[in-house]
């Protein structure tokens, strides 16, 4: 594969006060990589994801998106992004999907999807609407485009949130437990959409507790434990004989060991 990695994170550290949550994490995602991030609750998975699109500011470390380094400056001993403009730009290139959907409740589904392209990317509205409808069609909720988020099921809301992220034509997508807030019978519809994205070659970083997704859809599994990468590798190795004892114990809880 040529060109810079879509996403490159080097030696990220993050502390909340005296509590160090991330203790030096590095990760690289090349074009089309689908990486599953696994780990027990509190191991720092969300914090790591949020550091990548700067919803949290890493205490140390370097982040490159498509070869562009996010510039940091030290201010009063703390790391700060050097330019809000660059932060906004980087965020517009990374699609984020949250556990709790986080749709804008005062906007219809269609308005949610065109909001970014129209107001952040400043693209022509008519074009954005056509694209948004195609995206909603793709995730299977085009008939709900004029409904408000509160009138949709969790699975539909999450699919709308994925469409909203896709509408920005992101270089990579970050998913933070996209199915954890869903009733079990709604998990499948969201995973199907994510699987289709993976097959289309979208670069994805997915925090998940869905072992079937990690095993069957992703091409790399990263297991985090207490703020470090405990082990990482291809799913067949990780779920096969090559697993670390800690990972073996972790997946044991899911009845998959």
């Amino acid at each position: 594969m040529s060109g810079p990695p879509r996403l490159s994170v080097r030696n990220i550290r993050k502390s909340f006060g005296t509590h160090e949550v991330l203790k030096g994490i590095s990760l690289e995602a090349r074009d089309g990589d689908v990486i599953s991030l696994l780990g027990a609750s509190g191991s720092g998975k969300s914090t790591f994801l949020r550091c990548i699109n700067l919803l949290e500011i890493a205490t140390e470390g370097e982040i490159f998106v498509d070869g562009e380094e996010i510039r940091m400056v030290k201010k009063g001993g703390h790391n700060q992004p050097a330019s809000q403009k660059q932060v906004d730009h980087i965020r517009s290139e990374l699609g984020m999907v949250f556990q709790s959907f986080n749709l804008w409740s005062h906007m219809t589904i269609l308005q949610n999807v065109i909001e970014g392209p129209v107001h952040v990317l400043k693209r022509p509205r008519a074009e954005c609407i056509a694209e948004a409808e195609a995206l909603l069609e793709k995730v299977g909720i085009v008939d709900k485009r004029h409904a408000y988020p509160a009138h949709l099921s969790g699975g539909q809301q999450q699919r709308a949130a994925i469409a909203r992220a896709l509408a920005m034509k992101p270089k990579a997508m970050l998913f933070d437990e996209p199915t954890s807030a869903l009733d079990p019978e709604l998990v499948g519809e969201v995973l199907r959409v994510m699987r289709a994205l993976a097959e289309e070659g979208m670069t994805m970083l997915v925090v998940t507790h869905e072992m079937s997704f990690a095993r069957n859809v992703s091409n790399r599994v990263v297991f985090m434990r207490e703020g470090v990468v405990d082990s990482a590798g291809a799913p067949q190795d990780m779920f096969g004989s090559g697993a670390s004892p800690a990972f073996r114990q972790f997946i044991g809880h899911f009845g998959q060991a």
């Binding site: 699109n53 730009h89 965020r91 990374l94 984020m96 804008w104 909203r164």
Partner: peptide, 12 residues
């Protein structure tokens, strides 16, 4: 959460 979603697509 809604504010965070807005930041995440590049609004500030």
């Amino acid at each position: 959460r809604e504010i965070e979603a807005a930041r995440a697509i590049g609004m500030s």
